[in-house]
Amino acid sequence: MAKVAKIDASGIYYRELNQQIRRLATEGAQQIELHNVCGQRYIGTNLDRPVEIEIFGTPGNDLGAFMNGSEITVNGNAQDGCGNTMNEGKIVIQGHAGDIIGSSARGGKIFIKGSVSYRTGIHMKEYQNKQPAIVIGGTTQDFVGEYMAGGILVLLGLNLNGGENHKACFIGTGMHGGVIYIRGGIEDYQLGKEVGIAELAENDHQILHQLVSEFSSYFGYNAELILNHRFIKLFPRYLRPYGRLYAY
């Protein structure tokens, strides 16, 4: 039977809070509920074994940084650096999130119901059987997918009014791996020079179906209704975008 442990985080400094979480995880807690979280950083970093953490309130920056297999649910908004250099695990955010979500992640999944700020998925990678994925229900600011070297980024635009385009510019600048799927309007000038646009192929539909279904299951959407809409696919035009820059 799963053991659920609870912590009231009000007034606790992040270092103490994370020590308490670590202690609980080491003692064998499989599920940990954190209440009244207010800006504490690094929740989910350095746990010696994976646990499920449910957060009520607003966690601070670097939520799940370097995380290795835990699952975090945030009943609220998340701030910057969520999933930073994550190796494995899952983060579900029932609100919005800040800058550089999933920065340099090499594995794991991040689902965000609302919108995100700048540089989401920057320098995400993939490696062997690891392929990180970020699904954003709303829209994003500039530089989404910048320097992307692998992984899957899905932008659903569910909060755009009918006919309204995404506003982000420099999408996929410097991208040299991975794939970005976008639902909702976008103009050519909003894209980085290194990305190409393509229609979805059969395997793209499969990937999207899987990710959007999972997304919908967390946030109470109908996946079919979301998928029944035009998506475009952005891919890196070059594996080596800067290979011809130099004289030897």
């Binding site: 950083r41 920056n61 930073n84 320098h123």
Partner: peptide, 29 residues
């Protein structure tokens, strides 16, 4: 931990460090 044969690009800045406060954040992370 990257795919074989693709360029390994190190961006000029660390994109989670744009200030001393951000540096503190990574140090403590």
């Amino acid at each position: 931990m990257i795919p074989q044969g693709t360029d390994a690009l190190s961006p000029a800045p660390q994109h989670d460090i744009y200030s001393i406060e951000d540096l503190a954040q990574l140090i403590y992370a």
